[in-house]
Design a protein around this nucleic acid. Structure first.
Lengths: 341, 341
DNA sequence: TATATTTGCTAAAACGATTTAGTAATGTAT
DNA sequence: ATACATTACTAAATCGTTTTAGCAAATATA
């Protein structure tokens, strides 16, 4: 069996003092509680010597704090979320929090189950990339005064904390950039979900389209089709049916992957004749042929804001006014958004 | 303040029975402990009604089990590890375990700190992608009978459980493939670490090189240089100094990213004249120009084997013979490993 | 000198579960 | 009628902390 870990009780026994005293010393309350400097020193030295570390589980049970945050994303394997996970991990650990990552596959039931699971684990707070219809679950969390922060997308009708990016504006700018470069028949390939991030991207597209008097050509794929990069048939059909398309904006990274596959496989030569922009940057885009223009969300800032807010929520028992943060994405302009023929 | 969660005590009080009885029923010991069917039913119905969920923290404290596993990787933002994380997450949740992911940046001190941290959280087991010199820490864990499994790399001198891939053979095959396609001056760009996965890849390279009587041309970059895709200067110098190079094998995915950048930026046209293969596949490789040949590690199998082993370790108090699993990578052949001019 | 305050420390309850070691009541065998 | 088993349930200890309430001795104040 495992070697027994040394507990506060052992220390107290070894030093012939009470556990209370040890606990006070360990929690930096020696002064306040009138523990003599001498004894304090003795305890600290002994603690050091036997390499005592408090049992976090026991602490959690007593204090109700687990020092664990949950970061629930759509899919941790998605590079966008993986990157954010890393950023959030680093920030959280600096503040003494650990992070449980989990993937909800944008599925409401899965999200609910996970949230339930974690409530029973007494996690201290949630940073959630919410699935389409999670409003009730979220508002229950809020009612229970559990710190929650929505991330990447939000529910306009729900008064919550969130950190998102200016999807509509960023998309609009991307389209404008294509227009300025001479493209006229600009398609938008997106998901058919009603989530804010996607609706805003669609709005941005439509705004730009109508601003320049162009015609909308959009393909809205069901989320299920995009999992494991399916949806190629639909894209192929879409491109076949709309041969006038001279540029495409992909609303998210996996759509881009599928799109590039379709273009390369089913439309030889098209890759050099079509303009395109994607959401979310990737290292490989810089060296791709053509190099790929991308709407890059400010991941570092997003993570930082998120941690800021969640920490604030964790600290305060009193109500914190909801913080709604909208960060600006930037357009990283590369070759794919210029005419190349 | 938060709404108080219902506890086993509340249930006992409400039903005018003891907490023991409730606990027995909840743990399926009603029969064994001679709780009458009638009372059992009553308890279960009430539990359902008030939507009681046991407090995992209290359970953990009492039982010593946290139902949490740790998956420590180099960097969760790295697509290879992110993908594995997702696979492991799914498998673990199916078995009632949650997974704490963390990144050690291949740094020994960070690894040690993290392991310490998690031991105090009473995590049930560790799946670790170990940093270079973590042998002692790992063997301490083993001595303490904490389930540990090394992943992706191992210490040949340490008798542990591990799941890795056949790096030497896979690399050798990749080089042989290049040789068969007419490449003669094949360079190997890798890290200068002494970790098994990298040493094996180097060995595989050297084996192939000597088998065909070629000359070794290798660049070994310090790990620190590769973080955040630096090391481009070194690669540039390397390629300048060795103009005879007609093919390159990149030992890991971020080296490939940097390599492609250097080639595109500093050696115009070279991308179409050089053969290359990378470790770890990426979605974008299929559509890259040229499409990129990759050594793909069997991530799904790796995750499955890892969970199998760790679950076995968790179940058995008795010693489990160490399981050493070596899985086969496959070479996904695309254009970049053929002569294209 | 008597009283109040401060110093230095501790006993015991609490967090919410599990589990050991019971008790009382009933049934069964001799 | 007595002993033994079985049934149906429970009190209390336990896991390792934190924290409240309080005690005794030393010191300060009147």
């Amino acid at each position: 069996m495992r070697k027994k870990r040394v507990s506060i009780k052992d220390i107290a026994a070894d030093l012939n003092i009470s556990v209370t005293t040890v606990s006070f010393v360990l929690n930096g309350k020696a002064e306040e509680k009138h523990i003599s400097k001498k004894l304090t020193k003795k305890v600290l030295e002994y603690v050091e010597k036997v390499n005592y570390k408090p049992n976090q589980i026991a602490q959690s049970l007593r204090t109700g704090e687990s020092k664990i945050l949950v970061f629930m994303v759509e899919d941790i394997a998605n590079s966008f979320f993986a990157k954010l996970a890393r950023l959030i991990e680093d920030l959280a650990y600096k503040k003494g929090y650990k992070v449980l990552f989990c993937s909800n596959d944008n599925d409401d039931n899965k999200s609910k189950e996970l949230i339930h699971l974690f409530k029973n684990r007494q996690v201290d707070g949630f940073i959630i990339v919410p699935s389409p219809r999670l409003q009730n679950t979220i508002s229950n969390l809020i009612e229970e005064r559990i710190p929650v922060l929505l991330f990447d997308r939000y529910y306009p009708e729900l008064d919550t904390n969130y950190v998102v990016t200016n999807n509509a504006e960023a998309t609009q700018k991307a389209i404008e950039h294509l227009v300025e470069n001479g493209f006229k028949n600009i398609a938008f390939i997106t998901l058919d979900t009603h989530q804010s991030q996607m609706e805003d991207r669609l709005k941005g597209y439509q705004n730009a389209i109508s601003k320049y008097g162009l015609t909308e050509i959009s393909l809205r794929l069901p989320f299920s089709k995009t999992i494991s990069n399916q949806g190629d048939k639909e894209m192929k059909a879409f491109l076949k049916e709309n041969p006038e398309i001279d540029a495409i904006l992909f609303a998210t990274n996996y759509l881009t992957e599928t799109g590039l596959e379709v273009i390369k496989r089913d439309f030889p030569g098209l890759i050099d004749r079509i303009g395109f922009i994607t959401f979310d940057d990737s290292h490989l885009f810089k060296t791709y042929s053509p190099s790929i223009t991308a709407v890059a969300q400010p991941t570092a800032e997003m993570a930082k804001e998120a941690m800021d807010i969640i920490l604030k929520l964790l600290r305060s028992d009193t109500d914190v006014p909801n913080r709604k943060v909208v960060l600006e994405s930037s357009l990283i302009i590369r070759d794919s958004s210029y005419k190349r023929y």
